[in-house]
Amino acid sequence: MSPPERPATAAPPGWAERLFRSKVFVWILIVLPGLYPAWPILSQNPTVLADPLKYLLHHFGFVACLLLAAVLALTPLRVLFPRWRIALALNRHRRLVGVSAFFYALFHLGFQFLHEAGWPTFFTDIRKPFLFVGMLTFLILLVLAVTSFHFMVRWLGGRRWKNVHRLAYVAAGLAAYHQAAARKIFPVQVLWIFIPLALLELARIVRQRARPAGVPGAPASRG
């Protein structure tokens, strides 16, 4: 279904490539940000202790955005740098990274419920664009996570599955808005996360226009 991910004349993988191909290594990379809050909490950082829930809420939301942007960056990296073997190695983990973005978003939402003490004002709050968009983003990620199992891919069929999963781009746009609206003034970190992603996608579109990918008989070499 997908084109071969390794060049035909493959040299033995170097240590970096082996590392990034390792599922265990990527798992560790993904879990560490979730454990990070233990440090300021256990070391009694007063800024964090002032409202630990708010800290956890923002931290998990931030990591969810980061992982969502990361998983979407993997495909353009592979398209733009087909001979960069780290990019190929990382592309093996697309599902893992995508599902982990969902789990961070799930924790984020859980902390929001705790922060709002069960969220008694849920039905009035959800009419506010900031919170509505956040919830919509979460629902998209939920659909993508549920359809990430192999049997779901088979059940939907490759083309339909791919169309459904294009919703991830919508989710990224909504997440960028939601993250920006979470603060009183525009937080610059939103730009750090989503501008590189937007540039990568743009470059990928330009590249694919010039050389349609996956078309049989298309020249294999880069221009």
Partner: peptide
């Protein structure tokens, strides 16, 4: 009178911890 992005009906008490509610 709510803020456009969040409710002003209740508040979190600083120093209350994780399960202090509002």
């Amino acid at each position: 009178v709510d803020h456009p992005r969040w409710s002003q009906a209740s508040e979190r008490v600083i120093g209350g911890g994780v399960f202090s509610g509002r």
